[in-house]
Simulated scan of single mutants.
Amino acid sequence: MAEQEHLHPGDDEQLITLIDDKGNEELYQVLFTFDSEDYDKSYVLLYPQSASDDEEVEIQAFSFTPDENGDASQGDLYPIEDDDEWAMVEEVLNTFLADDDAE
């Protein structure tokens, strides 16, 4: 399981453009990044920049290769294809959201 001290909340400057299968581009903001020692990977969770605060959004998750500053917006994104890996990412997200609600 990823350790919580490895969570790095996104800031306003970390934006990533995703391109769908039809070539449509959408700008996403980094929610947070974290590292998993179990999988020896870094992960980034994104949400659409256009989403309003009261809107329910679909969060996108990828593993990524960070740049020299650990920035996700400059590295390569990779799909998460393993079910156990997805379960770990969802657990980290749920913990992050529960901690955010508690504040």
Rank of each mutant, 00 (worst) to 15 (best):
H6W: 06
V92D: 13
N69D: 05
S63F: 02
D100K: 14
V44F: 06
D54Y: 11
Q4M: 02
E91Y: 14
M88W: 08
P79Q: 02
L7Y: 06
Q49L: 12
T65I: 04
L45Y: 08
D53P: 04
K22R: 08
D99Q: 12
Q4P: 00
I80G: 02
V92H: 11
E81H: 07
D21H: 03
I19Q: 10
Q4T: 01
L46G: 03
Q49W: 02
L7D: 04
S52A: 01
D76Q: 14
E5Y: 10
E103D: 14
N24H: 10
L31V: 10
V92M: 15
S63Y: 04
I16E: 06
D35L: 05
T33E: 06
E58S: 07
I59Y: 09
E56W: 06
S52W: 01
M88A: 14
S63A: 05
L31I: 11
A98S: 13
Y39W: 13
Q74D: 12
E56T: 08
N69Q: 02
D99T: 12
S52T: 05
D99M: 11
M1Y: 03
V89Q: 10
E26F: 02
F96Y: 15
A87V: 12
Q74L: 14
P79L: 03
D54T: 13
A2S: 13
T17A: 10
Y39A: 09
D54W: 09
K22A: 07
H8R: 12
I19L: 07
E55T: 09
F34S: 07
W86M: 15
A87R: 14
L7P: 01
V57F: 11
L93M: 15
A98C: 08
D84R: 13
T95A: 09
E13V: 07
L46R: 02
V57E: 12
D100Q: 14
S73A: 15
E5T: 08
L93A: 15
D71W: 00
E25Q: 08
P9H: 08
S36Q: 03
L18S: 00
E56Q: 08
M88C: 13
F32A: 09
S42T: 04
E81S: 10
F62I: 07
L45Q: 09
L46Q: 03
K41E: 12
V57D: 11
V30K: 03
Y28S: 00
L18K: 00
A51V: 03
D54P: 06
F64Q: 00
L93S: 14
Q74Y: 13
Q49P: 01
Y28P: 00
E37G: 02
Q74H: 14
V57W: 10
E55I: 07
D20E: 05
V92P: 13
S52N: 01
L18F: 00
Q60D: 13
E3F: 07
E55H: 07
E3S: 10
Q74A: 13
D82F: 13
E68V: 06
L46H: 03
P48W: 06
D21G: 00
V89N: 08
S36A: 05
S73Q: 14
F34D: 07
M88Q: 14
E58F: 08
E85D: 15
A51M: 04
A51Q: 03
D21C: 00
E85S: 11
V57C: 13
Q4A: 01
W86Q: 15
D20S: 02
T33D: 05
